[in-house]
Amino acid sequence: MSKYTLREAMAIHASRQIRNEDKVIVGTGMPLVAAIIAKNCHAKDAVMLMEAGPFDSNPLALPSCVADPRGFVGAPWVADPVQMMGMILQQGRIDLGFLGGAQVDKYGNLNSTCLGTYKNANVRLPGSGGASDIGAMAKRNLIIIAHEARRLVEKVDYLTTPGWMLHPYENGKRVKDRLVHRKELGLWGGPEAVVTTMGIMKFEEETKVMYVSEYYADLGVTLEMIKENTGFAIDTSKADQVIPPTEDELYILRNVADPENIFI
């Protein structure tokens, strides 16, 4: 068995979350890599979409972003953002959204806007892009993020992309002492899993709080390590060891999905 890194494991385990007939909208970076692995392994019929336009993208080389000409090759049609995000996504026709971010909280809310307070941020990030829309309107969502205590946090510094539990707005003001299920705001979907560099997290059916579903025991990750590297108290009692990456998956990752090591 070949050796593999935590990042490689993360890409492969994320790819396994994609189902064969999913229409999956992917963001720049690891989501693109994982979707290409899936399309070359267990989910050959998955349809890959990008917010910049590619519809059913079948690239010959890894696109370096969602607007890279590489993503447009082999696609039967190209959408513009009004069509892709204003129509296809908003109508609820996209099965799976696949997002990264700088922070995720225990309810799967994502931050890709700023660290610290908004008006006097310690770090300003590029902003939502299409993440907020995808998190709101895809039928399921998948989050991919490095497992660090500063990234998996009790509460995100800024809520860019809606997860499960949210503060409602009343008379235009955000009600900070009340949390409601996204359904109460008229949102469908929601995050299904968070794939990290340590394992796969899921959300409790009732409380929608994140827990450890599987962990990378094959790479020496322990449940203790996950607890130490998570910024909130995380339940590890239901955790199983993952099925390690296969030779096929590793081959596809290294030779087809990202042979130039652009994101891995």
Partner: peptide, 17 residues
């Protein structure tokens, strides 16, 4: 109209520079 933005801080008037 849009169905997006609900529940996010993008529409929080406190952040409206």
């Amino acid at each position: 109209p849009t169905k997006s933005l609900k529940g996010t801080e993008i529409i929080d008037p406190e952040h409206d520079l």
